[in-house]
């Protein structure tokens, strides 16, 4: 469970987050939508203590993230926008193993987690392949596997599929669906909800650093358009 209370964050004296409160239950599929500059990225980076709040608090499973970053980072897995900058090894298996290695797990457990995470994103038995030779869609899925290898309760994806074509996005989204079906919570951060609106349990709209609305998908369409987020039109995907 992710609990956000009265969160304030400032960059160079400017308020990027201005009193955000939010609760995300285990296993929930949440779309966090907002236009560029609304504070989405700043908010989710607090979930695993990559940023510390100026006021307010984020709790992961009841423990403040800033007090126990290891717990926050194992419980909330992060997938960032450009996969190329988040890979830390030249080959698929070595990259996915990076997180479990940092946890000090033994080699058998690391191998098991790598195999399982790659299996979950349809990349089984491709440990030895060079990441730079994969397609964009495959890279996005390996990035997801890198987060999954920590066995997180929540997976946070920050504009993860930018620049991917529809078949690549569809394939990655299907993997998210099956993860969600197995109980992993998904937090999908985007300024374009067309692919994900129907999948979500809830849509949280962020505008100028505050929560503008927090609604079921069907009720959120109109409000999303108001804050300049692209929504599925009639006849579209």
């Amino acid at each position: 469970m992710i609990t956000v209370r009265d969160l304030v964050h400032e960059f160079d004296g400017e308020r990027v987050l201005d009193g955000v409160s939010l609760t995300i239950a285990d296993g929930e599929w949440v779309v966090l939508a907002g236009p560029n500059g609304s504070g989405k990225t700043t908010l989710v980076r607090q979930f695993n203590a990559l940023l510390e709040p100026d006021a307010g608090e984020v709790q992961i499973g009841g423990v403040p993230a800033a007090e126990n970053p290891v717990r926050a980072r194992t419980s909330v897995g992060m997938v960032f926008q450009s996969p190329r900058d988040q890979f830390v090894a030249a080959t698929v298996g070595a990259d996915v193993a990076f997180g479990p290695e940092n946890l000090g797990l033994d080699h058998d457990e690391i191998d098991r987690r790598v195999a399982e995470a790659l299996g979950a994103v349809n990349m089984a038995d491709r440990e030895e392949e060079r990441i730079d030779e994969l397609s964009g869609g495959e890279q996005a899925r390996v990035a997801i596997a890198g987060a999954l290898a920590m066995e997180p309760d929540h997976l946070v994806l920050d504009e993860p599929f930018t620049g991917l074509d529809w078949p690549a996005r569809r394939s990655a989204l299907q993997r998210l669906d099956s993860l969600a079906a197995d109980g992993t919570g998904i937090v999908f951060v985007t300024h374009d909800v067309r692919d994900v609106l129907d999948r979500a349990d809830r849509v949280v709209g962020l505008e100028s650093g505050t929560v503008a609305f927090d609604l079921p998908p069907d009720d959120a369409r109109e409000r999303l358009a108001e804050i300049d987020v692209r929504v599925p039109g009639p006849g579209a995907g």
Partner: peptide, 10 residues
């Protein structure tokens, strides 16, 4: 970006 990604993975 690499710096953030490294931290996110403990």
């Amino acid at each position: 970006r690499l710096s953030v990604a490294l931290q996110a993975r403990c």
